[in-house]
Amino acid sequence: MIMTEEWIDIGTLEDIPRRGARVVKTARGDIAVFRTMDDGLFAMDDKCPHKGGPLSQGIVQGDSVTCPLHNWVISLRTGEAQGADHGCTRIIAVRLEQGRVLLSWPGMAIQAA
């Protein structure tokens, strides 16, 4: 596992199905890493703002995901619930570098140590 100061390598883009997600387990809880139809990458806490449903298990459509528990639709860009619902999930920074998926969040290094 490659570790830089603030980014952590969690795998390759191909490991995540298109219009799907995979889970990264961390000491602060699960993180959902999404890949859209067009290979857009997004990451956020794997927790719906409604009742904590695992968003990684939802259906990905465009750049949002439908929570598997009660169908709230959460924006992958902002983590915010769409439509009439209110609430927000915490976004995690993610980037792609030469086919590798890298994650970063505040305090990650401290936790990792």
Partner: peptide, 17 residues
């Protein structure tokens, strides 16, 4: 198989380091 495995388990990685 990917459906049932986490992409990465950082808890374990950290414990091992």
């Amino acid at each position: 198989a990917h459906e049932f495995k986490p992409l990465a388990d950082l808890r374990l990685a950290h414990a091992a380091e």
